[in-house]
Amino acid sequence: MKARVFVTLKSGVLDPQGKAIQHALEGLGFEGVNDVRAGKLIELDVADGTSQDDIDAMCRKLLANTVIENYRIEAIG
């Protein structure tokens, strides 16, 4: 079974990498990019039957730092 975990910075937390990407896009001539936030995608291959709660615990204990980050779990079967 596979699951995807999306880790993103909480709103209100400055994202210097996102800002740098935004400036680079502007430098390439793309107009109207209002904001860029960079995050992480972590793909897990876990044993069938692994519960949502187990994956949630993985996120809280290691995959995300909940002081600065939010996470979202997407089961992809």
Partner: peptide
């Protein structure tokens, strides 16, 4: 937490 330096 310690995050990426503001100036990159």
């Amino acid at each position: 937490a310690l995050m990426r330096n503001a100036g990159i």
